[in-house]
Write a protein that binds this DNA or RNA. Structure first.
Lengths: 188, 188
DNA sequence: CCTGTTGCAGAACAATCGTTCTGAAACATG
DNA sequence: CATGTTTCAGAACGATTGTTCTGCAACAGG
């Protein structure tokens, strides 16, 4: 009972995520968060404990979505097909204001340490998943013999980060498709 | 005449650049800038006009250094040799806290518009220089026929941004060398 | 040594930050 | 319709932000 809330937790997180992606953790001021989410200050503190809690919640939700995109990398058998499926999924999504995760990396020295650690862990995990599939591809002869699988995994991870930054400068989604097209020439 | 100043403009800019690279424009607070540069508030305002002026000066100096690194791209004849020299120069430099220019991109919606425009212009210009050399390579038969030179230029630009982000997560410079090694397989 | 000028160190400023608090509004229940 | 509970809207809080100001220190020239 009591007065019904005028917001949905998911909806609030969606809008907060959007603002955080545009302005960053420090750059997104509480007043803007209140304006954008429609959630009043009181409820914001009751629901999320404060700005940091809201950011953490938004980030975790976002990383969850990203993890769903990389689900293809977990399939068996490990190989290039999984990597290609991963990129296809990435391409289907659009990132109008860049990627919250990548943007947040740049705030390493501004964020509470445990928040940043969340991102670093996720990045390492994704790279590991990529590596698993590249090793699998190596064994199955999908990659040229003598390929540096580890270096390739790092390369792909770095490229993903780069594409997310490039998306801010050139928001046209077609660019991303073109860039990923070039990646094909590496995967063999 | 008058009391001699205890600072050098270049030294101040160097230290300010370092702090801005770590914390970003909004994240680098004036008190920290004062502490790090050793420049007192009064002189900071007299010399640079304020935080925004200091950032703009630091950024322009930094972009100048980056431009020096990409000088190889301006040489004739345009071709892959120039691109390789560019990457060698990039690799020789080290970026302990990532790249100020790339880090600043994520602050697009926080920065004064004309400051952000500086970065965007620089990125576009570098990509154009890359494209010139890729087209040259195409004509001279250094690239496989039918290669998407424009896409390749976008790819390389995005990759550079990515490597600078990756350098924050994995500060080991050896990683960058490894990643650039993979790029070789694209340049042919 | 005095005087004029410039830079230094820190106090003081309004504005804004994230956070907390207060009183009224909007329901479910008896 | 009263009562209890939960949320809402906005005022109020101390702390910190970028900026400006004030008094003193350190030189060059006469």
């Amino acid at each position: 009972m009591g007065r019904p809330r005028t917001y949905t937790r998911d909806e609030v997180l969606r809008k907060a995520t959007d603002l955080f992606a545009r302005k960053g953790y420090e750059g997104a001021h509480l007043q803007e968060l209140v304006d954008v989410t429609g959630l009043n200050r009181f409820s914001l503190y009751k629901e999320f404990g404060g700005k940091e809690g809201l950011f953490q919640a938004a980030l975790e939700g976002y990383l969850g979505q990203l993890a769903a995109l990389s689900a293809a990398l977990q399939r068996d058998p490990a190989g290039l097909a999984n990597v290609r499926a991963f990129y296809a999924a990435l391409l289907a999504e659009d990132f109008p204001h860049g990627c919250l995760a990548v943007n947040t990396i740049r705030e390493k020295h501004v964020l509470p340490a445990h928040v940043y650690a969340t991102i670093e862990r996720f990045a390492a995990e994704t790279e590991r998943s990529l590596l698993r599939n590249l090793r699998g591809a190596e064994q199955r002869g999908e990659l040229a013999p003598g390929t540096d699988a580890e270096g390739l995994a790092q390369f792909l991870t770095a490229l993903n980060m780069g594409v997310m930054s490039y998306a801010i400068v050139a928001p046209d989604p077609a660019c991303r498709a073109r860039i990923y097209g070039v990646v094909e020439s590496v995967l063999r």
